Simulated scan of single mutants.
Amino acid sequence: MESAVSQQLRVLPGEFVVEHLGEGAPPPDGGWLSLVRAPEGLTVVRPSRPGEGPGAERWSALYGGDTAHAVDVPGMLAALLAPLAAAGV
């Protein structure tokens, strides 16, 4: 069994939006944080842009990837969510 590796969780600067693009949509040009393609289409997490409508839902982004870890290490999600839940986030 591998020993636990300490991860530093940080808030990325700025605000982000989540866009759901149709099936077969190409990735957008410009900066983005995450692209996820599924059978239903493409989901893009990108920085919010000045002038986007007031109805655009904005998000903060957390990042915990300063130290690489194996994808099969158990408990990574719980290690991030438990302290957030305890803090009422």
Rank of each mutant, 00 (worst) to 15 (best):
M1P: 06
M1Q: 04
E2M: 15
S3Q: 12
S3M: 08
S3E: 14
A4R: 07
V5I: 15
V5S: 14
V5E: 15
V5D: 11
S6K: 13
Q7W: 03
L9Q: 01
R10Q: 06
R10N: 00
V11Q: 12
L12E: 13
P13H: 04
V17N: 00
V18S: 07
E19W: 01
E19C: 07
H20L: 10
L21D: 04
L21N: 02
L21A: 09
E23D: 14
G24P: 10
G24L: 13
G24F: 11
G24E: 15
G24S: 14
A25L: 12
P26F: 05
P26L: 08
P26Y: 01
P27C: 11
P28S: 09
P28L: 09
P28G: 08
D29S: 14
D29G: 14
D29P: 13
D29W: 06
D29T: 14
D29L: 13
G31D: 15
W32T: 07
W32R: 07
W32N: 09
L33Y: 11
L33V: 15
S34L: 09
S34M: 08
S34D: 06
S34W: 01
L35S: 10
V36Q: 10
V36G: 02
R37Y: 04
R37W: 01
R37I: 00
P39L: 10
P39C: 10
P39I: 08
P39V: 09
E40Y: 08
E40D: 15
E40R: 13
G41P: 03
G41N: 05
L42V: 11
L42H: 09
T43I: 14
V44N: 04
S48R: 08
P50G: 03
G51I: 04
G51K: 05
G51T: 07
E52G: 03
G53F: 03
P54S: 09
P54I: 03
P54N: 03
A56W: 05
A56F: 06
A56L: 07
E57W: 08
R58D: 06
R58W: 05
W59A: 10
W59N: 12
W59Y: 15
S60I: 11
A61R: 03
A61I: 10
A61T: 10
L62Q: 05
Y63F: 15
Y63M: 11
G64M: 01
G64N: 08
G64T: 01
G65R: 04
D66I: 01
T67D: 09
T67W: 02
A68T: 07
A68P: 03
H69W: 08
H69E: 13
H69P: 02
A70F: 13
V71W: 14
D72E: 12
D72P: 00
V73D: 12
V73Q: 14
P74M: 12
P74W: 12
P74Q: 13
G75C: 08
M76I: 14
L77C: 05
L77V: 06
L77D: 00
A78M: 00
A79T: 01
A79E: 00
A79H: 00
L80P: 04
L80W: 00
L80T: 00
L81M: 15
L81F: 07
L81I: 08
L81V: 09
A82E: 02
A82N: 02
P83L: 01
L84Y: 02
A85Y: 04
A86S: 11
A87R: 12
